[in-house]
Design a protein around this nucleic acid. Structure first.
Ligand SMILES: [Zn+2]
Length: 538
DNA sequence: CGAGTTTGACCTGCGC
DNA sequence: GCGCAGGTCAAACTCG
């Protein structure tokens, strides 16, 4: 009896369960459908946005070409850019300051300590010849092998011709033509100033320390690192703390990677590039077109998504070919660039006030500098989205899916919008970007890396010029697209989110295949001493 | 034992 | 030509 009763009860219970289960299934189904609908809507939205972006891009591109043509016609005989030639060193400074107003030139040195978030290392990367955006990993390997032999040669040669996206090509043609004229002997350098507690920035690349020296005027020793991701990679970096503010880490990247960048680095570079481009647009005026264009170009090369941005960038009303402002900007005396270098300085320290810098311009007449400001106000929201975007990027790092990067798209969109309505909207975008940049050290480094790479590529190009005209374009393309500039590893300990997520392990990043693999986690970014940029060093 | 760091020596460019 | 400073090399050492 009891047994029966029990059985009956059980059955009832079972029936009830089944019912509830069915109900649950239905609900789930409904939910799923709803989600699907939402996804579809989202998809449509994205498509619309993409279409819009493309349209804008084309428009801007056209404008850009017009401008270029105008410029060319204006100064047909000029062989070199005035600025380039005249100034032994070009200093382009990117200011990613957090201060919202900081429109322009603030004293870099005075940078305050607003950014406490980045507590750790920053990283920069330099150009990379073979870019990871490419679809076929195999190519990377082959490239690596071939490249690994001679550093210098590599630097000068972009390498194999990779068909960049058409957009890039067009951009490159236009933009680069002007650029190529830089001084032949110049070596590209990217200096990143960022607040970072960690000894070095994590940029996703592996670095090996090969020397240390106490520079004059700065009690803090300067460390010298060499990229070890690929044998023979010519990229080097110097890491030094600012004498005036020990919390500021100054990292200088030099050279162009002769290997594909790690996914994380690539992703960072792209995002950074996008942000940089966008912000540049916004701030527009002061940035030198050339520098920006190049930087962006390099960045864009890495990721298609960015391409759009770069396009925008180029599209900018050539605000400045002629008007380029050259200001000397020398944040840290000890680091003063050698005359033979073309240097881009990324100031991620968020200068507090915007006026001081101007005062300093006069101090170092010798160097011209272009400054890029990324004013920002703090916001965490942007950052989150950015991170997401980054992640998505990362997964696709090796696929050419420019338009698909939603994150980038959003950014682009913003940029575009802003661009369209020049003055009005600038702040929002700028802020957003700035926030993103500021909040994430890795991002910062990425920007720097991207720029660096670009510059490096450019420099190498210069060397090659004259040799083969026919190849020129190709080279450029290659250099710009495939060869990302070294990604600036921004890694700090802070490297935070991006790196941690995307980057493969710090120390073990490996050139080809590994790049593709999403490494699980970042070990600890703690040791500054660690050599691996990815992990510790930098 | 190999990879990476340390550190003094060495090389090079530049100003006087 | 000399000295200085920045940058690099490489032997010795450390670490996993
Ligand atoms: Zn490298």
């Amino acid at each position: 009896m009891l047994a029966f009763k029990g059985a009956a009860v059980k059955e009832e219970v079972c029936a009830a369960d089944e019912r509830s289960v069915e109900v649950g299934k239905e609900e789930r189904l409904k939910n799923t459908k709803t989600e699907m609908d939402e996804m579809r809507e989202e998809n449509d939205r994205l498509k619309t946005i993409l279409a819009h972006i493309v349209k804008e891009y084309q428009h801007l591109q056209k404008q850009y070409f017009d401008i270029v043509q105008q410029e060319q016609s204006k100064r047909p005989l000029e062989t070199t850019n005035p600025s380039d030639v005249e100034e032994p060193d070009e200093l382009v400074s990117l200011s990613l300051g957090t201060s919202s107003t900081g429109q322009k030139k603030e004293d870099v040195i005075s940078t305050k300590k607003e950014r406490e978030e980045d507590g750790e290392g920053l990283t920069l990367g330099l150009g990379c010849r073979f870019e990871g955006t490419r679809k076929s990993p195999n190519e990377h390997e082959s490239n690596l092998c071939s490249d690994s032999s001679s550093e210098e040669a590599k630097e000068e040669e972009p390498g194999e011709p990779r068909p960049p996206t058409e957009i890039l090509m067009s951009l490159r043609t236009g933009g680069d033509d002007e650029v190529p004229q830089q001084l032949p002997a110049k070596k590209a350098r990217v200096t990143v100033r960022a607040r970072c507690d960690a000894p070095t920035m994590i940029d996703g690349c592996q670095w090996r320390k090969y020397g240390q020296k106490i520079a004059k005027g700065n009690p803090c020793p300067r460390a010298y690192y060499r990229c070890t991701v690929a044998a023979g990679c010519p990229v080097r970096k110097q890491v030094q703390r600012c004498a005036e503010d020990m919390s500021i880490l100054i990292t200088t990247y030099q050279g162009t990677h002769n290997h594909p960048l790690p996914i994380s680095a690539t992703a960072m570079a792209s995002t950074a590039a996008a942000a940089a481009a966008a912000s540049m647009h916004m701030s527009g005026s002061s940035a030198s077109e050339q520098g920006m264009g190049e930087a962006i170009g390099s960045l864009s090369s890495s990721s298609a998504a960015i391409t759009t941005l770069s396009g925008l960038n180029f599209g900018l009303p050539g605000s400045t070919l002629s008007a380029r402002q050259q200001s000397s900007y020398l944040p840290i005396p000890s680091l003063s660039p050698a005359s033979s270098y073309s240097t881009i300085t990324l100031d991620l320290t968020a200068p507090p006030s915007s006026t001081s810098q101007l005062s300093q311009l006069g101090r170092f007449p010798r160097y011209s500098s272009t400054r890029f400001n990324f004013p920002s106000s703090e916001s965490s929201t942007v950052r989150a989205s950015w991170s997401n975007g980054y992640l998505s990027n990362e997964s696709r790092a090796y696929h050419d899916t420019p338009s698909q990067d939603s994150f980038c798209q959003s950014i682009l969109q913003e940029a575009i919008d802003t661009t369209a309505a020049p003055a009005l909207n600038q702040h929002p975008l700028t802020d957003t970007i700035a926030k993103a940049i500021t909040s994430d050290p890795s991002f910062q480094s990425a920007v720097a890396a991207a720029i660096t790479s670009y510059v490096g590529a450019h420099g190498s190009r210069t060397g090659r010029e004259g040799v083969t005209h026919g190849l020129k374009l190709e080279d450029r393309l290659n250099s710009s697209v495939p060869h990302l500039p070294a990604a600036v590893p921004t890694a700090n300990a802070c490297a935070s989110s991006y790196i941690n997520r995307s980057n493969t392990s710090s120390s073990s990043q490996q050139p080809n295949s590994l790049f593709l693999q999403p490494s699980p986690s970042f070990p600890g970014s703690k040791n500054a001493s660690a050599n691996h940029d990815g992990g510790s060093i930098n």
